[in-house]
Write a protein that binds this DNA or RNA. Structure first.
Lengths: 340, 340
DNA sequence: GACCGCCTTCAAAGCGCTTTCAAAGTGCGG
DNA sequence: CCGCACTTTGAAAGCGCTTTGAAGGCGGTC
């Protein structure tokens, strides 16, 4: 069933039927009613490609996912983010296009979006401090929104971020209040903007009390369970082990936890852990009582919101162009006073 | 830059340019060369919508992801699967379209694919025993490929599956050989085909030795860390705790492990665990020595393969229409002889 | 009764590509 | 030197939609 057939059935022109369906004001109420009923009855839905061709729009948002074997962004966090974004897309009539490419192909992928016209805009994941992709997207004129921020990129752009600095400052203060002085930081890759901000928050809190950070207790890497385990193991087996860990991801924290338990230590008594918790659907931080004390912010909600901001921008609707989310600090069983 | 401009620049008709670029045989080698060079130089790439409209093809594959709050398929396993599928799509010039909808909207979403024509086919995730979506897709005539199988659906269709039954039979045998008799099964939802097959494999092995399964040591649910923890806790605290766990997912297994360690028990000595391992990029089963003894099969590779099978089918290329993957059984530190 | 303005509808062009059908050019045998 | 087959190129139609510009119908006004 296409427009032509439908209009023939109705004895109307394609023009009128199209306008009736798209809510233009110049069709009479009676005609509109009739057209809509017929469309429903014959299960008519406009062909997306033809509509796109005629309007110059794709009604789709693209996500480029770099996926070399070294650096994978196809992680559970990303999964939850797109679940949230996908809800918004569905609600507002957009498709979500995912493009998985090798690191080296990312630029080409964005250019292809523009040139092929298969998406109206894109969401940028995992921004670096001075992320070249932002310059690229500005340059080629593809609308975009950033999940996070890029501190060193000048100028304005649409973003949504968590107040990482504040969150980690609060978390560190909390540990300090409990008497911890040897606090380890297991951070994400500090080429990433969020990781730098978290470290800043961590250091802000230490500095405020005149406590120097301990280089041996600092790691920055991909946030996997395995690396969390390894880093924590190294530190715990070292000459001056930490009494507390501040961890950038729930997944790493599971690894840290494994290292702690493996050594027969008790969480919240011998060693404390605070982690950032993205509220992943498949790895909730406990059901009643949280496993970990955590700075919490739902990445799924972030997906919902940012997708909406991007679509607003594409459709010329005015709305927030920047948005900062504050974290909750939730108390779990993984923290306690520093052992003495 | 579009076809018209490019052909004007070249002093050729759109016809010839189009043919040259699409590899039709009736253009001379010299012309083709010249056209391709010009296309490259002017960074020409055909508009996807126009191409789609003209060919009736979308050059895209859709994935419908149900996402109510109760049953979430947006899980890490899915993430790795689409990472693999995405690689194939990119290589073969396809886009990946993701549609996140409420459970109740799944049928509508598939119908929309067909009617809007925004994808050429779809991949079906998490098939049930007698999955209604298969009938639906056959009915509306949208090409599809199934990740897994639906045992109770008659007739032929394209699928790729892991030999779940065999894998779990071998795993169970392995535990039995170690002397375990009270073996718990922490399975996925047994409305899902794979979960039923795994239970069959488990029961096959027990039956072969005349050992009855123990209902109190059987669970079937969403495969989250939290539920793994809860189920294992219940069993370990029960009157007759298991000496070994057979777990359907690495994520659940982490929960089981947590329950075991929380009780001061030692893995591989007091309690054994075997899990299925989908080789998730963000949660590898240890680096040198595996954390868990596991039945292993890469879901990412499955994504790569199945995407290829679907595209073959869409393009009319002959290839495998069904494919069965065997699991490795890898030995880790989580298993040992049954305590006596 | 002629004229004006408004409401409603329509014919047709155009979006950027593919593909059919026709025509022009080329080489070769008779 | 003609005719034929073959190679190479082009004009134009068509994919299904939106949108411009024009026109028909109608009531109200002078």
């Amino acid at each position: 069933m296409n427009l032509k057939e439908l209009s023939r059935i109705l004895g109307l022109s394609q023009t009128t039927v199209s306008r009736a369906l798209n809510g233009y004001p110049e069709v009479s109420a009676a005609t509109r009613e009739r057209v809509q009923a017929a469309a429903r009855q014959h299960n008519y839905s406009p062909n997306a490609r033809a509509k796109g061709l005629a309007t110059g729009r794709a009604y789709a948002i693209g996500h480029v996912i770099p996926s070399s074997d070294s650096h994978e962004i196809v992680n559970p966090i990303f999964g939850d983010f797109i679940a949230g974004a996908g809800e918004t897309y569905a609600r507002r009539g957009y498709d979500m296009v995912l493009t998985v490419v090798d690191d080296a192909e990312v630029e080409r992928a964005f250019r292809a979006y523009k040139v092929k016209g298969n998406v109206d805009g894109t969401i940028l994941h995992g921004p670096l401090l001075n992320d070249p992709r932002i310059y690229l997207l500005r340059d080629i004129g593809l609308p975009f929104a950033v999940h996070g921020r890029a501190s060193e990129v000048p100028g304005d752009y649409t973003w949504l971020d968590v107040n990482n600095r504040r969150a980690f400052q609060r978390a560190t203060d909390f540990l300090l209040d409990l008497g911890h002085r040897r606090i380890a930081l297991i951070n994400g890759l500090e080429a990433m903007d969020f990781a730098v901000r978290r470290r800043q928050g961590f250091e802000d809190a230490l500095t405020a009390r005149g406590i120097p950070p301990i280089p041996a207790l600092h790691r920055s890497a991909e946030m996997t369970e395995g690396l969390g385990f390894r880093f924590a193991s190294e530190m715990l087996d070292g000459p001056a082990p930490p009494t507390a860990f501040l961890v950038s991801s729930f997944i790493s924290a599971l690894g840290v936890r494994r290292a702690v338990l493996d050594r027969g230590l008790k969480l919240g008594r011998d060693v404390s852990i605070i982690t950032h918790d993205d509220v992943l659907s498949y790895m909730t931080n406990g059901e009643d009582e949280p496993i970990f004390t955590a700075t919490r912010s739902s990445v799924r909600e972030a997906g919902r919101l940012l997708a909406g901001m991007l679509i607003d921008r594409i459709e010329g609707v005015t709305g927030d162009t920047q948005k900062m989310l504050e974290c909750d600090l939730v108390l779990g069983a993984s923290t306690g006073p520093a052992p003495r």
